[in-house]
Computed example of a mutant assay.
Amino acid sequence: MTHILLVEDEVKLARFIELELNYEGYQVSIAYDGFTALMAAQKFHPDLVILDWMLPGASGLEICRRLRITDDKVPIILLTPQEEVGDSVALRKNRIPGLDAGANDYVIKPFSIEELLARVRTQLRCNQQEGTADILEFDDLILNRRTGEVYRGQRLVELTTQEFDLLEYLLIHPRQIITCDRILEEVWAYGFIGDANIIEVYIRYLCLKLEANNERRIVQTVRDVGYILDN
């Protein structure tokens, strides 16, 4: 079971997040201050840390830096203080130090639990995929994650960043039906504002490029469900 360390000094909020994470199938340990968090991280070796910015004693930033010294792999999501929407200067002041301290992502208080859960899933998925080979292959299709090159046979296929990310995701999950909602959440990322039909548009662009020399179709549409990489 995936183990999450939640570091939050607001007891009611911590309990609420714990219950939601438990419902999603995660095991949760709670620390209410930085010192306890460091001890818990050393003891449990969690798969992910949710870390509040404001903590008694050492700040969340300091705890983040210390966690990075002992574990450079564990994903850390930082819960930042409440900020005024549209205050770009304040946003930059809070976000950049957090990332510099080693955080992988951040969620601004107050936040919806759906957003936090989506970011948890994304960070866990990204961490799992770090062990994936640099070269992803399917049929005559080759994607090099390190160089960003894609080949169909001997032909170099020029893709946009979004097309590359979409194809990479399909290659990581070959012969699996992937819903549009899942693509929006895990490729476009939570918070995407726009028409879900954008997925259909990008799939069409991707297929046109992959089949430019009349190659057979390997990105298939599953009507009213999603898409699948299959031959």
Rank of each mutant, 00 (worst) to 15 (best):
R65M: 10
R65Q: 13
R66D: 13
R66Y: 02
R66M: 14
L67W: 01
I69K: 12
I69P: 00
T70I: 15
D71P: 04
D71S: 08
D71M: 07
D72P: 02
D72R: 12
D72T: 12
D72V: 07
V74K: 08
V74S: 13
P75H: 05
P75E: 07
I76S: 04
I76P: 00
I76T: 04
I76E: 02
I77V: 15
I77N: 02
L78K: 01
L78G: 04
L78I: 06
L78A: 06
L79T: 03
L79I: 06
T80W: 01
T80V: 06
Q82T: 15
E83L: 15
E83D: 08
E84M: 13
V85Y: 05
V85G: 09
V85W: 10
V85F: 11
V85Q: 14
V85N: 15
G86K: 07
S88A: 15
V89A: 13
V89G: 13
V89N: 10
V89I: 12
A90T: 09
A90W: 01
A90P: 05
A90N: 05
L91P: 03
L91E: 10
L91Q: 14
L91H: 08
R92L: 07
R92E: 10
K93Q: 09
N94H: 11
N94T: 08
N94M: 04
I96P: 09
I96M: 10
I96T: 10
P97W: 01
P97A: 12
G98P: 04
G98A: 14
G98W: 03
L99M: 15
L99D: 03
D100R: 04
D100G: 07
A101W: 00
A101E: 01
G102P: 00
A103Q: 02
N104D: 15
N104Y: 09
N104H: 15
D105A: 09
D105Q: 11
Y106Q: 09
Y106E: 08
V107N: 06
I108Q: 03
I108L: 04
I108A: 05
K109W: 05
K109Q: 13
P110Q: 09
P110I: 09
P110N: 14
P110W: 11
F111T: 03
S112F: 15
E114V: 15
A118T: 11
A118L: 08
A118Q: 14
R119Q: 12
R119N: 05
R119M: 06
R119D: 02
R119E: 05
V120R: 02
R121P: 06
R121L: 09
R121I: 04
R121H: 14
T122Y: 12
T122F: 12
Q123R: 14
Q123T: 00
Q123D: 05
L124S: 04
L124K: 03
L124Y: 00
R125E: 07
R125F: 11
R125Q: 08
C126F: 11
N127M: 07
N127A: 13
N127P: 00
Q128K: 08
Q128P: 05
Q128I: 08
Q128H: 12
Q129K: 13
E130H: 11
E130D: 06
E130I: 09
G131Y: 10
G131S: 07
G131Q: 10
T132V: 13
T132R: 10
T132Q: 10
A133E: 12
A133R: 15
A133D: 08
I135Q: 13
E137N: 07
E137Y: 11
F138Y: 15
F138K: 07
F138L: 00
D139H: 08
D140L: 09
